[in-house]
């Protein structure tokens, strides 16, 4: 696991049409969070100076920009997390699967259990399109989960951005009373 100073220098590009969220604010305690409108993603990345690595969190339709960045900069993008990404039909799965190919960027897609527009039942499409994509269901939340359950979403994203695909292994101590 990265130590505190390493985490705080790590860059998270948070793409959201509505700007900063409660979850992005919480992540700001541990990471350099750069909030941007989806359309500004490319220019933000150009401003990083070329060599800097970063991860991308995308809210809703901004999933497309996150995926595009991962495909354009697979050596710089350390991970992507898609919050309530749009539903993919079979043609969408095939198209994304073809674009993604053998890309190794760790990916996670988050679905709220009360989300009617991108319900958990639509999550499997992302697993089919993006090999190894981690599907996470956020209980009692809609597409606005990063404002509705910010602690839960930020904690999950923090784990994933630090540990990438190894986040499935708990590092929490089970000791109750030492």
């Amino acid at each position: 696991m990265a130590d505190a100073s390493e985490q705080q220098s790590a860059v998270l590009l948070y793409l959201s049409k509505s700007g900063a969220t409660k979850a992005s604010a919480l992540l700001g305690r541990d990471f350099r969070v750069l909030t941007a409108a989806p359309d500004a993603a490319k220019s933000m990345v150009d401003g990083f100076g070329g060599a800097e690595k970063f991860s991308v969190i995308a809210q809703g339709d901004a999933a497309e920009q996150a995926i595009a960045l991962a495909l354009a900069f697979p050596d710089r993008v350390e991970a992507i997390a898609l919050i309530a990404p749009p539903v993919l039909d079979d043609a969408g799965v095939a198209a994304l699967g073809k674009r993604w190919g053998e890309t190794k960027v760790p990916a996670m897609a988050l679905f709220g259990t009360r989300d009617r527009s991108s319900p958990p039942q639509s999550s499997a499409a992302y697993r089919r399109a993006i090999a190894g994509c981690n599907l996470m269901f956020v209980y009692d939340a809609t597409a606005g989960m990063d404002n509705e359950r910010p602690e839960a979403v930020a904690a999950l994203l923090r784990e994933f951005m630090v540990s990438k695909n190894r986040f499935v292994v708990s590092r929490e101590s089970g000791v109750i009373h030492p």
């Binding site: 988050l110 209980y139 009692d140 499935v168």
Partner: peptide, 17 residues
């Protein structure tokens, strides 16, 4: 009912896969 591996971020329960 879910056939793909999934994780759960709940209030009282959480699982990674």
């Amino acid at each position: 009912t879910e056939n793909e591996p999934f994780g759960w971020q709940g209030r009282y329960f959480d699982y990674r896969t």
